[in-house]
Design a protein around this nucleic acid. Structure first.
Lengths: 195, 195
DNA sequence: AATATTATGGAGAGTACCCTCTAGAACATG
DNA sequence: CATGTTCTAGAGGGTACTCTCCATAATATT
């Protein structure tokens, strides 16, 4: 009992991803997204409460899409060490497969106006962060790395380090080199070595 | 033979640093900087050709200030390994001493409108990048890490990894924990280990 | 003291963007 | 076919920012 939409949400978010990858988060304006899919600006406000809501949706859809495979990789393999290596490798492989979304991830929620997000989106973001923290803590425990320092070292190994590797290349505009997965895995393994 | 300036360049750049640290690069508008020091907007255009030039100056002054101590640290110590450790430690210590400037570094030249920079500023930026690349290559050579993969591993160890550590905390709004220098040094050392 | 030089101080044009609002179009259901 | 609902379509107000321009002020030199 309603008129069918001509522009659906995912189509608009796809355009937003493209704009964010090319011009940064500030390039994701309501008008730019509208123009990019040929929609009038008014239509955007039927889907999103405002610009902060749009930015939150793009960010969360991307992060959640990434995390899906990330958790699976962490739990895969034989033992915590192998899981860590697989997770690191997944960060790079996923970024290679989704370069635009990876460029988006490298910015961080703050640049996507996190401070202005509606309540519900903030909760979604926090939930994702908690899940990552918990998974990393479990890994650290299984590896025998205790205390604040050990936890942080594991975080660096399986999250920040592979992201750094991706950032180094994508920010330069180049694609990821073929050996990137291999390098990420080696470096993560070196950091997970209990000294 | 001229009226003395009431607002000198460094004072304006200081304000720009403050704004960038608090609201991100997009918060560094000509009006905001002017208002922040109590100057009329016109005065800003006597010092900087436009907003791109202002952003370039803030960025370059900060990066060059950072690199000064960084190169000294890289060359310090006993042998390349110790130099790498000192460099990693320097990244963290400098960020602790200059939290606002560190927040600025974490953004990257691209977010400061690098694409719109005047020619001269681009050259200055390139020169700095070249110097870092050369220093890292020299370190890799001294450590016996050859090839593209070895070079990249050393870059991660002495540049990206310590920056990641800083980012993890500063982006969350927290200050750096006391053990950060120690952790950075340990992790860098682990990555520089020739396996 | 006259002059050249360099700043200030502030008004205002031009532009881009966010968002609102209204009229009407397209469809499912009774 | 009538009705109610959801969407399109686009005009337009409000706001923030960049940049220009010009009259005026303060100084060093002659």
């Amino acid at each position: 009992m309603a008129r069918p939409p001509r522009f659906d949400i995912s189509q608009l978010l796809d355009a937003a991803v493209r704009l964010a990858a090319e011009h940064g988060p500030s390039g994701v304006t309501m008008s730019a997204v509208a123009q990019s899919v040929g929609a009038p600006s008014g239509s955007l406000y039927h889907r999103f409460a405002g610009r902060p809501a749009l930015l939150a949706e793009v960010w969360l859809r991307t992060v959640e899409g990434f995390q899906e495979g990330y958790f699976a990789a962490l739990r895969s393999g034989d033992g915590p060490r192998a899981g860590g290596r697989a997770a690191s490798r997944h960060v790079v492989a996923w970024s290679r497969a989704h370069p635009q979304e990876a460029a988006l991830l490298l910015y961080g929620a703050h640049e996507f106006g996190r401070d202005d997000w509606p309540e519900g989106h903030l909760r979604r973001a926090d939930e994702g962060n908690m899940r990552v923290r918990a998974a990393v803590a479990a890994l650290a425990g299984a590896l025998g790395l205790h205390g604040e320092l050990g936890l942080e070292r594991v975080s660096l190994a399986v999250v920040d380090l592979p992201l750094s590797l991706v950032r180094r290349h994508l920010r330069g505009g180049e694609p990821l080199p073929p050996h990137a997965e291999e390098l990420a895995e080696q470096c993560t393994d070196a950091l997970l070595t209990v000294g």
